[in-house]
């Protein structure tokens, strides 16, 4: 199995005033294509920073990050944006939908950045919303949708440019448990049926256990790997 994500000796150091904070401390691991990993740890453990580094939202202070076999450490901001656009789909705890746009428009947004033609954008957006069970609410704005529905719109948005990797940061953290289970089912389906690589950050052990592999992190260090 080819590695789709590989971290080699990654450290991320923040300067908070005069204090150096090591959010990540020489982390190394790899994720194969079509896998489901959960990253678990208490708040402040560095798990969100780890997801930021994997998602190319930030560069590590030390070490190297490979995405789909390509080293990303020397890339420009726009080159990283291109990889995010083509290979990575983000799902956030707070959904992060654009409030002014309808569900469909939110889903179409990444395709706009990718330069997909208008008619195709609409068609594909509709398909994706149907896939997550929101075919009947495509013209609703985020504030007219429930938390679970908003997260499903966000998942549809993450899938628009057919990414290989889905990064989910506490995807069920802001929604009720019934909707949370729905979201988890979708993530598992993406891994099993769509052959995506899913990386999920959570602090909930019962959720983490549904992943194929678990990585436990504390004080910026991986303390346990479990299958």
């Amino acid at each position: 199995m080819r590695n789709i994500i590989e971290l080699r000796g990654v450290s991320k150091i923040y300067q908070l005033g005069k204090v150096e904070v090591k959010a990540l401390d020489k982390v190394s691991f790899s994720i194969g294509s079509n896998d489901f990993i959960s990253i678990i740890g208490p708040s402040g453990s560095g798990k969100s920073t780890l997801l930021d580094v994997i998602g190319l939202l930030t560069k590590p202070t030390l070490g190297q990050v490979f995405v789909d076999g390509v080293v990303t450490t020397e890339m420009s901001n726009d080159q990283m944006a291109e990889i995010r656009r083509k290979k990575i789909g983000f799902i956030f705890q707070t959904f992060n939908l654009i409030p002014r746009l309808t569900a469909l428009e939110n889903v179409m947004l990444p395709m706009w950045f990718a330069g997909v033609p208008d008619s195709e954008k609409k068609e594909r957006g509709q398909q994706l919303l149907e896939l997550v069970g929101l075919g009947h609410r495509i013209n609703h704005k985020p504030n007219e949708l429930s938390g679970g529905e908003r997260q499903r719109v966000a998942i549809a948005r993450a899938l628009t440019n057919k990414p290989k990797i889905i990064l989910a940061d506490e995807p069920t953290g802001n929604i009720d448990s019934k909707s949370g289970k729905q979201i988890m089912d979708i993530l598992i389906k993406l891994y099993k049926d769509e052959k995506k690589t899913v990386v999920m950050v959570t602090h909930d052990n019962s959720l983490a256990k549904r992943a194929r592999k678990r990585i436990k992190i504390k004080d910026g260090k991986i303390i346990r790997r479990a299958k």
């Binding site: 726009d78 944006a81 083509k86 956030f92 950045f113 440019n161």
Partner: peptide, 16 residues
């Protein structure tokens, strides 16, 4: 600001 962060995360370039 947050919206800008989202747009960047989902692949908008600086130029965009």
């Amino acid at each position: 600001t947050r919206e800008i962060g989202v747009m960047k995360a989902i692949g908008a370039t600086e130029k965009r």
